[in-house]
Write a protein that binds this DNA or RNA. Structure first.
Length: 347
DNA sequence: AAAACGTGGGT
DNA sequence: TACCCAAGTTT
């Protein structure tokens, strides 16, 4: 019974697998090549909480700039952070570099789930995914897609996150010894294309006959999720400080932890997800209000006012003058890229 | 254990 | 428009 589930799913995958830049076609043996685990790992980290469409151009750029884990390990933090700009969850990029250096140091990626799990930025999901997809290990790979598919398949009604243990145990019963990587990716393809959150396409599902959630009537209500918290509204100010008739702008590097940590940015008034900014500019002067940018984070919505000043002196603290013509290469996170766009439009 | 941590696309 | 949420990890 459970064996027939994995067999049905793999048959479906053989016919319906998505063609993705980091993926082998179904059934193709694992390459005996050190760059293969690197590409799997890189794609998995990029895909954490991030859509396939968003990842594609970043994966292409990273693999062109740094074709191997050794190349990435040798890159500067600044270059990697700048290349990650716009993808979000920047702690991933900070951990990416740490992980690359650790892996280069030990001479390649480890092949076991436990060793992978000990690397920076690899949690339960990513360690299992790399073990299965890069090394063919029969690891139990559970992401949000698998949670949804399994909760429905076995009609697990307990609410998340409490249901995770039961979901994982159920997932383990259908994980095959062979083609573990294909199986993991098949579950994720099924979850993203067929067993979708809102309107599952049960008529196209290779597991419909076995699905207890479908039998029970309302597969779309599973898995049961906890109520969502309200997202606070915050206000802050960013400062566009120029010299040389607006040809250079003052940029800072944000602290290594916290929001947009380690990213180059415009100076601001200390706003955070927890509190509004002070509004206080870093320099006295005749500031011009250029407008505001609205930006949604996971746990706060921000209105960022943008003020501009052509300055004689240097602002206090660490920072650098950056050619405005090259602002696109500064590696600004989307929030500050929008603020910069506003400044350039109003200049 | 709960909260922090980005962004863009879909509905 | 507003809300949802996607191949999660860290503290």
């Amino acid at each position: 019974m459970t064996a027939s589930i994995s067999a049905s799913l793999l048959d479906w995958y053989d016919a319906n697998a998505r063609d993705l830049p980091w993926r082998l076609p179904p059934g193709v043996p694992l390459p005996d090549d050190a760059d293969w685990p690197y590409r799997v790992w890189l794609s998995e980290v990029m895909l954490q909480q991030t859509t396939v469409a968003a990842v594609k151009p970043y994966f292409a750029r990273f693999t062109a700039l740094w074709p191997s884990v050794d190349a990435l390990a040798a890159a500067s933090d600044d270059d990697v952070m700048a290349a990650w700009a716009g993808l979000g969850y920047y702690s991933r990029a900070r951990n990416l570099v740490k992980c690359a250096r650790a892996v280069a140091e030990r001479g390649g990626f480890p092949a076991t789930e436990a060793e992978l799990r000990a690397l920076p930025g690899l949690g339960d999901y990513t360690a299992a995914a790399v073990a299965a997809i890069a090394f063919g290990k029969p690891a139990v790979v559970v992401d949000a897609n698998v949670e949804r598919v399994v909760a429905r398949l076995f009609a697990i009604d307990a609410p998340l996150p409490g249901a995770r243990k039961a979901i994982r145990a159920a997932a383990a019963t259908i994980t095959p010894e062979k083609r573990a990587g294909d199986f993991a990716q098949a579950m994720m393809d099924l979850g993203s294309q067929v067993c979708t959150g809102k309107a599952p396409r049960c008529l196209l599902c290779p597991l419909a006959d076995a699905c207890k959630g479908r039998k029970a009537g309302e597969p779309a209500r599973l898995p049961v999720k906890p109520p969502k918290k309200a997202v606070p509204e915050r206000h802050g100010t960013a400062f566009w400080i120029t010299r040389r008739q607006g040809r250079e702008v003052w940029l800072v590097t944000r602290p290594g932890t916290g929001m947009l940590g380690g990213m180059r940015a415009l100076p601001d008034d200390g706003w955070s997800a927890r509190a509004d900014g002070s509004g206080a500019p870093p320099l006295a002067g005749d500031w011009r209000v250029l407008g505001a940018v609205r930006h949604g984070f996971t746990h706060a919505h921000l209105t960022l006012e943008v003020r501009a000043l052509e300055s004689e002196g240097q602002p206090p603290g660490e920072g650098q003058w950056w050619a405005v013509a090259r602002i696109g290469e500064a590696g600004l996170a989307t929030l500050f890229a929008r603020a910069a766009a506003l400044a350039l439009a109003g200049a």
